[in-house]
Design a protein around this nucleic acid. Structure first.
Ligand SMILES: [Mn+2]
Ligand SMILES: [Mn+2]
Ligand SMILES: [Zn+2]
Ligand SMILES: [Zn+2]
Lengths: 138, 138
DNA sequence: TGGTAAATGCAAGTGAGTTGCAAATGTGGT
DNA sequence: ACCACATTTGCAACTCACTTGCATTTACCA
């Protein structure tokens, strides 16, 4: 059973600041992973002025606590989505317009075990993204 | 049946330059994906002076022709490996020392079809990397 | 309500990757 | 072997995501 966001912060010795609440709110209302600039723009739109560097620092911290997930499509920047209350999953991005869709699946449970046996690594994560062309850009 | 490197270059209207040959040679002698800086260092070591920007431009071009594969572990830089004569595969990287190992497998053939049906995207690629701790760093 | 560690904003810095342009070089035809 | 010419290269300047240092502010707890 998963800790609440507030309890996770407390357990990590973190304060529940105005900036933090606002950043989490922006992420919660976005179904898909968004860039740091998009988080920042969301804050400005919500009349919450938070410096860009504060967004960077908070996203890094939230990621360390496991509350936020970083996703990269090799666009030259990372994207972030909330983990809390959502199932582990992956994404596909259109090479034309950049659109992203959630893929509510993960085929890697069994394979992870196999890799651990074959490589003697202990595997603790993976990144899986698909690329292609959406119906509009096809 | 796969075109030779020279034929692929020719087909793309590309010249077989000294820099190009040397870059491919560096990549060929490395089993694992290496950074642009590492390619460049390899050139210097081989007494072939090629500007860093030339390395960037050639790797981008070779990737477009499908001769080279870009791999990213979200380290803040990309890595490159030759495709020619090697089977499609994936990688695992140690979170401690950064060591990379080839995983000669890909579990995504069937899943790709399923995703195409479900999303109406045409899928033309994917990125899959595993992360963990190697025996030394465990 | 005050003491204190954590968090924030601002300014400056880092580093991967890109761009513009003049000079150099590989290629295909003669 | 030579020429014409498109491609490629090197250099310098630039962009932009992200980080760091430090003085000030803020959330938390006794
Ligand atoms: Mn998602
Ligand atoms: Mn490989
Ligand atoms: Zn699209
Ligand atoms: Zn290791």
């Amino acid at each position: 059973m998963e800790l609440s966001i507030i309890d996770s912060l407390k357990a990590g010795g973190k304060k529940l600041t105005k900036a933090r609440k606002a950043i989490l709110a922006v992420l919660e209302k976005n179904a898909l992973p968004i860039t740091v600039a998009e988080v920042h723009a969301g804050l400005v739109k919500a009349r919450t002025n938070v410096d860009l560097v504060t967004v960077y620092r908070n996203l890094a911290m939230l990621q360390e606590l496991g509350l936020v997930n970083a996703v990269g499509f090799h666009e030259g920047q990372m994207r972030y989505e909330v983990v809390h209350g959502r199932a582990h999953h992956h994404h596909i991005q259109c090479r034309g317009c950049g659109k992203i869709i959630d893929l509510m699946l993960c085929p890697l449970k069994k394979l992870t075990k196999l890799i651990e046996e074959q490589t003697r690594f202990s595997v603790d994560g993976h990144a899986l993204e698909f690329f292609g062309w959406c119906p509009q850009c096809r």
